[in-house]
C-alpha cells in the first residue's frame, strides 16, 4: 500500500548530498505524523535516505520504491 503523503519533495536530477539535505529541510517544516514523499533520480538515495532516516532522531522510513528511473521514499515525522 502506498503511504498517503502530506508533502512531496522533488529532487529529481539532484545528486548527493542534496536529496538527504533537502529532505531534512522539508521535514523540519512538517508536523508530527506528517509523511514526506521524496522523488529522486540519484541511485545512491536508496541507501542514503534509509541511513539518514535510521540515524536521524524524529523520523522513520516507511517505504522505498525503486521505479524505472525514479526512486521514491516515504518518511514520517515522528517527533519534533
Amino acid at each position: 500500500m502506498t503511504p498517503n503523503p502530506t508533502e512531496t519533495l522533488d529532487v529529481k536530477g539532484e545528486n548527493c548530498p542534496m536529496p538527504v539535505v533537502k529532505s531534512k529541510q522539508a521535514i523540519d517544516e512538517l508536523e508530527v505524523d506528517d509523511v514526506l514523499e521524496v522523488l529522486a533520480t540519484d541511485p545512491g538515495s536508496m541507501s542514503d535516505m534509509a541511513g539518514w532516516a535510521e540515524t536521524m532522531p524524529g523520523v522513520e522510513l516507511i517505504e522505498q520504491e525503486e521505479g524505472e528511473s525514479v526512486y521514491t521514499h516515504y518518511v514520517r515525522k515522528i517527533a519534533q
Binding site: 548527493c16 548530498p17 538527504v20 539535505v21 531534512k24 539518514w52 540515524t55 524524529g58
Partner: peptide, 11 residues
C-alpha cells in the same frame, strides 16, 4: 562541505 551539510541533516 558535503559531509558538513549531510551531518547537519542528521541533526
Amino acid at each position: 562541505l558535503i559531509l558538513a551539510s549531510t551531518a547537519a541533516a542528521f541533526g
